[in-house]
Amino acid sequence: MSVPRFWRKQVARYNLIGTHCTNCKTYYYPPRSMCPKCRRDGKTENYKFSGRGEVLTYTVIHTAAEGFEKQTPYVLGIVKLEEGPSLTSQIIADPGTMKIGMKVRPVFRKLGESGEKGMIYYGTKFVPE
């Protein structure tokens, strides 16, 4: 991913900042510039999520995406945050201990890098509570 593309949402990735629509009271992560429920009637503001949530579903990836080869096997999950929205992230846990419904909390971690000389991406992963 190019530097500007990552940088644009860097703060949201580092701090789990998403969107709250003050019109319909719905929370969104990843952030959205327009509330998909209220559309043009929506009023969006930034919102920092607590990051507490539960695992909705997960997989253990053995054949990695490009750039993730050294991390296998890694756990990828969909985490439902307590405010409502769900996101995709890695869960740092022994694959054998993973369970649907388990409680997780966020941690700041390296996500990957653009080759040896490129930028390093950081963001939010999750660990069991």
């Binding site: 990836i61 054949t63 993730f68 990828l76 890695q90």
Partner: peptide
Amino acid sequence: DREWEGIMGATFPGLYAMIARLHMH
């Protein structure tokens, strides 16, 4: 979604595996 799934290490088999896991559950 390259920006919010791909960057976390999601693969296509991975996404469908998560569907499968929940379907099984």
